[in-house]
Nucleic acid binder design. Structure first.
Lengths: 213, 213
DNA sequence: CGATTAGTTATACGCTTGAATAACTGCTAA
DNA sequence: TTAGCAGTTATTCAAGCGTATAACTAATCG
């Protein structure tokens, strides 16, 4: 019985690999499928190593949730260009790859179903949600100010809630049954809805703009 | 050691109680908390009885999912009144109790996270979703026909997708962070969004109408 | 009232789980 | 080259899981 070969990794590497393996397990087999043994197998290590990097299974799940939220929201941050371009891009990135796909939804739903059960996950969720809406509110304020429209906090807040809801709902539909519509269909519905809500037209990002990236 | 007292129930009673217990367990402790022993304890029976009524744990979960879907959609069916009233009620019931609350979301998310993993759940989900959207398309067709507006299948379909998305998104927001807005806030956002999309005003249900029910 | 049976309990089995710990070894530094 | 240690493996443990089955008993019927 020969002992299995292994190579020593840096802490950052290992933690990254283990979290990635955790997300893979969840997306492919649900939260129940994310056992320490499955995670370890997928990461190419033995189960005991997980406990060396994470104090418990709960902890690695929390870390994985943080990574997921970051991945789902990072594209919508640090947008550049005019307020109109940024608002337009905000809508676009949230309804297209890599944010909108069935894997994202599967992961998101798995964690959401535990948010009301696990206070630690609830805290992580709340922070992510508030930060996301704050970003949207800022975009809206800039956009409306540029249009010379009245910018009261109450109106900004209401608009952000509505637009956030619309984007969430279309994201959901697209992830759940993406094969039922063209990608551009949901995006164009989102644009017309948002335009109707804020009372201003918004130029959609042109394909050539994106291709050049 | 005295044997535990028990009373014999009818099949319908028992199945109902066991499914209800299953939903309670999931909403309070997540899918992982819905073990046969926990379900049995909550239903006031012993674990073995579950296998007497359901061939496996998977089966009881599938039945519970069917019940959940029925509960989330039944209010939106069998609506009465003019097309405008029915459309208006459709929007209203989907964004207020008992459809919109954190327990519903928690249950919904738990099952959704397994839809992409478990083909049986996927089939149940798909049927519920298509039936829900068909209902909405019928409402829209009736409404638009009454307004003398052009009613092409393509337009109905696009509108149904958009409105479904908006309702889903607002439902989600309300369930996730209900304390952050008034109930009427989300409902009124929904109405103004839908009005903007279909290009016609819709009379919201009046409080007195509902009180009289 | 006694026999029957279907609904229910009780118990046990094999397996998996998260966790703890001991043994090993690739790597680094001197 | 080698000593030491931190990273990794291997093994073990108790608890909990879904399931199977045998024993019991409340209700039913002649």
């Amino acid at each position: 019985m020969t002992r299995r070969d292994f190579h020593r990794g840096t802490e950052a590497e290992r933690r990254h690999d283990l979290i990635e393996a955790t997300l893979d397990c969840i997306s492919e087999a649900g939260l129940q499928g994310a056992t320490v043994r499955q995670i370890a197998t997928r990461a190419g290590v033995t189960a005991g190593l997980i406990r060396h990097y994470f104090a418990s299974k709960d902890i690695i799940l929390q870390e994985a949730y943080k990574v997921l939220i970051a991945r789902l929201t990072e594209k919508a941050k640090n947008l550049e260009g005019t307020p109109e371009q940024r608002l337009s891009d905000f809508i676009f990135v949230n309804l297209t790859e890599p944010v909108a796909n069935s894997r994202s939804l599967s992961l998101w739903a798995a964690f959401i179903s535990r948010v009301s059960v696990d206070p630690a996950l609830a805290a992580i969720h709340r922070e992510g949600y508030l930060s996301f809406r704050a970003e949207l509110e800022e975009l809206l304020a800039d956009f409306l100010a540029g249009r010379g429209a009245p910018v009261t906090p109450a109106r900004i807040r209401a608009l952000a809630i509505a637009i956030n809801g619309i984007l969430d709902g279309l994201w959901l539909e697209g992830c759940l049954a993406g094969e039922l519509f063209e990608e551009s269909e949901l995006v164009s519905i989102a644009f017309s809805s948002v335009e109707a809500l804020i009372g201003h037209p918004i130029a959609a990002p042109t394909p050539t703009d994106r291709d050049r990236e």
